[in-house]
Design a protein around this nucleic acid. Structure first.
Length: 332
DNA sequence: CGGATTTGACCTGCGC
DNA sequence: GCGCAGGTCAAATCCG
């Protein structure tokens, strides 16, 4: 069933290399990770069937990845992902905590290790899918990190899986705090992508201006506060937008079960790393005369495949969220 | 029977 | 203050 469930089409401008660094095959017929996310048991050479595998694999290839982005890097430089199927390409970029795009120490990323199995194109960003949050977060920025951390500590102290009750216990007037997020845009016919973690669906809402509902998932691991939202682009139904929120307080089940040995801890996928990737990429593009136009979001979008352009173009608010500093800070 | 999903109700934040 | 939309809860239902 995995037939041509997905199609790849996103190649980042001038960095086709990247596509071979982070790529994977759809989890064969992969459908719902909530059901049975594991297809990658103790195989000798398990294919990168999960987002986790893929992304973490990419971490192992930090050196190569960094090279692709021209990042300063001390990691082994000759480690390169098998890459193989260029059918799936991803550029991920956690753009930071709640709109504050450059807070390397916020630790926001490390968390949700977002990846997209059945899919192709994907790239991520904080709030890429959370238009409303983007605005909200911009306003909350100053306090947000602090508050998020406080809340997390509080929850831990209370000891229960109170994470979901936080809202209720909050005093009035206190804004609801949001964990750092990043979103992935993925082309897939499957809504719920297998990322190696186990998720329980806890809600579904109709989305304004979209015929497709948004689904809400929570990580089923005890005390793990991570949530994710999954929705389809109303303009391109094949596009799935997955937004991760929070930080996993545990190992990825898939990883634990399988090939952990070479993998860095979840936290290794740090925000700053992701940020760096994107920012380096952006800077490089900016420094390249032939690509100067990329500082303009519209032109930038022009480099994206049609489906993504469609997705982002309406008022490119999403893209702005995805590469906020690049657009705003990159210019004099 | 236990765990996952569905779905309507409720809560919260925000814009007008 | 009101209405809207996003987000969450929890009872009902489904499914292995």
């Amino acid at each position: 069933m995995s037939g041509d469930q997905e199609r790849s089409h996103f190649s980042f401008p001038s960095h086709d290399e990247l596509s071979s660094l982070v790529s994977w095959k759809p989890a064969g017929g992969a459908t719902d990770s909530a059901g049975d996310p594991r297809g990658f048991g103790p195989r000798a050479v398990p294919p990168p069937v999960s987002l986790t595998d893929v992304l973490r694999g990419s971490m192992m290839d930090y050196g190569a990845l960094a090279r692709a982005f021209d990042l300063p890097c001390s990691a082994p430089s000759d480690v390169l992902a098998p890459g193989g199927m260029a059918s799936s390409r991803e550029l991920m970029a956690d753009v930071g905590n709640a709109g504050n795009s450059m807070t390397p120490s916020s630790g926001c990323g490390g968390s949700a290790t977002p990846m997209t199995p059945n899919s192709s194109t994907s790239w991520s960003s904080t709030e890429a899918a959370g238009e409303e949050d983007a605005e909200r977060c911009k306003k909350d920025e100053p306090k947000q990190e602090e508050e998020v951390e406080k809340q997390r500590v509080k929850v831990e102290e209370e000891g229960g899986d109170t994470s979901e009750k936080v809202n209720k216990s909050k005093k009035k007037g206190e804004k609801r705090q949001r964990d750092p997020r990043f979103a992935f845009v993925t082309e897939s016919e499957v809504d719920h992508l297998d990322d190696g973690y186990r998720w329980r669906k806890y809600g579904q809402k109709a989305v304004k201006n979209s015929p497709y509902p948004r689904s809400y998932y929570r990580c089923t691991t005890q005390k793990c506060p991570v949530k994710k939202r999954v929705e389809r682009s109303y303009q391109n139904p094949r596009i799935v937008i997955t937004t991760y929120e929070g930080k996993h307080a545990h190992e990825c089940p898939a990883t634990v079960r399988g090939s952990t040995h070479l993998l860095p801890p979840p936290s290794a996928m740090s925000t700053s790393f992701c940020q760096n990737l994107v920012m380096q990429q952006m800077n490089q593009l900016n420094n390249d005369n032939s690509l100067q136009a990329n500082i303009n979001p519209n032109v930038y979008l022009a480099n994206l495949p049609p489906s993504l352009q469609q997705l982002q173009l309406p008022d490119y608010g999403l893209l702005q969220d995805i590469i906020p500093s690049f657009i705003h800070g990159g210019q004099p």
